[in-house]
Nucleic acid binder design. Structure first.
Lengths: 204, 204
DNA sequence: GGTACCATGTAACGTGTTACATGATTCT
DNA sequence: AGAATCATGTAACACGTTACATGGTACC
């Protein structure tokens, strides 16, 4: 049917808040859904053809010219209709998790480094987010009907989740350090699966 | 170069833990990276051609036959090398967040419904996860070097994050309900964020 | 009689990333 | 001198989803 996709609605949402160039759009969208410029520019063209957006060209001195896109009435209606439908399930892809899955074959040092690096990344994220949150709080327009409300609570959400993941990482580090979890085990285990006997695992 | 991708490593990780059919694989992988069967079967073929896997055909009565795949030595080495490299950044895509972004144009009722539905989903996830965690804890093979360790901590991670997101949802519901709370209160809450006391503060 | 589970596979399509292209200005 | 920021665009490729195909068993 060649209908608009989630990225399209994300763009409508951002432009509903305020008119933007494609370049700016990519930055604003980063909170909700990271997107490359190579995906955004063709999408903007497509959406303009569908009368969901319009643009004006803005000449700049010392910088390249840009196109400022605004949402149309039709765009607003389309967005509103979409907002009322219940969202589809989230997608999370994370190489870190795949590595964690195989942590048992990784040796203590490498495991701890993996988790420690994650903690460092999370800490960076946390400082970045508190800066963003502080910025939003300073411009004092955070009522539930303010156009900044969504961004504000989204930053808060990310902050909370990053913090919780950090706590989890520290819990994991503890488990690895005091490998006290494995006391009752360490024997011979033969587990069945399907009709086959899994390889016999011997640990000490 | 036609080298293996993240999905391939996820498969190696799962098969490193124990031999599986493609069908089972899809289920085990769900913790770390959801995958459709239409993607898994061609990938298994490709990986077998690269000598990372081998399979044996298992005839079943009352059920379709299946192929049990196992990891080869070459597969293990490939996996180990990959595990040592630092993981690339996670990808999260979530329509819910895009809708939240535009919450300011949504009206109180619809906003609250959106968040309330999210809470319901999270609660389902939480009960599912606690069941899974309980299962793993019962078979008592959770030492850091047990093949279940990775799965165990991954379930815990998901649980923690889902719980934290639920808390966030409730915080948002409060903000919407008492929409009189303006700037000063929000500021206080954010400062207290580090100590997770904000809910107390929010009730004016 | 309908749905769910087991089990594997291919084809067409939609989405996302990397690389190619261009080019001035400002900061370190 | 080199990197980063601003600014837009296309082409080739990699990745992921939906739909098409098949078919028995178990449960409600």
């Amino acid at each position: 049917m060649n209908t608009i996709n989630t990225l399209g609605y994300a763009i409508l949402g951002a432009l509903g808040r305020k008119p933007c160039s494609g370049y700016e759009l990519a930055q604003y969208l980063e909170v909700v859904r990271p997107v490359k410029h190579s995906q955004i520019y063709p999408m903007l063209t497509k959406m303009e053809q569908k009368d969901l957006l319009v643009h004006v060209r803005v000449d700049q001195t010392g910088k390249p010219d840009k196109k400022i896109f605004s949402i149309t009435e039709k765009g607003k209606e389309t967005l509103q209709k979409w907002l009322a439908k219940s969202p589809s399930d989230p997608i999370n892809r994370d190489e870190f998790l795949i590595k964690i899955y195989s942590i048992w074959m990784m040796g203590e040092e490498n495991s701890m480094e993996l988790v420690q690096d994650r903690i460092s990344n999370l800490e960076e994220t946390l400082t970045y987010l508190s800066k963003k949150i502080a910025e939003l709080e300073q411009n004092k327009e955070l009522g539930t009907m303010s156009k900044n409300f969504g961004r504000y609570i989204l930053f808060n959400r990310k902050f909370r989740l990053a913090k919780e993941e950090k706590t989890w990482c520290q819990w994991v580090l503890n488990l690895i350090k005091n490998k006290n979890l494995n006391i009752p085990i360490l024997c011979v285990s033969a587990r069945m699966f399907g009709n086959l006997v899994e390889e016999v695992v011997l640990v000490i």
